[in-house]
Amino acid sequence: MSKQESGFKVISVLVLIAFFAAALLAYVNKITREPIARNMKEETKQAVRIVLQNLGQFDYPDDPLDKSLTEFTARYFTAKNASGQIVGYAIIVKAPNGFGGDFDLMVGIDSTGKVLDTYVLNHKETPGLGDNMKKEDFKKQFRGRSLANTRWAVKKDGGDIDALTAATITSRAFTAGVKRALTVFNVLNEEAKQ
């Protein structure tokens, strides 16, 4: 340290650096904001297409609608066929208490209340263990299940669902998530009938 700089110089240099940094970030934020929003939307749309693919062509709104129940809230897309009849729902719920916290799960449900397919939107489950929930081997057992025809718990807890090897907590959260989606479906279905 050769000489002691004046306080004024020290402050002005720091302020200048911070100013340029802020200006640069504002610019980058401006050009990336739209692609980021588009990516998120695109992924959700992609997920809707996957979980409802068995229903064929249909119309659904661009943005999901909100549905609040007493215990949790969900978002959903309504799929309608050409004549405007409701053929199914894609319901986004939080799967509660996974190994890495809650995670977002989309469940496709047809108009009779049967699960079509599931899609995990984002999660922090352990790679190689919990994230096997995205694999076909685990997902296929949920297809065709409804609230009435299934005991919604993993086999260890006396239910009908085969848990993932070494990822029981993730499987419980996933099962509870699908059950939540079916509960939301029942509410939506009742409302649609009225």
Binding site: M1, E5, V10, V13, L14, I17, A18, A21, L24
Partner: peptide
Amino acid sequence: PNRVRIPAYIVVIAT
């Protein structure tokens, strides 16, 4: 300035 080099570097890096 030598006295505030670390904060300055951190601002640059964080940016």
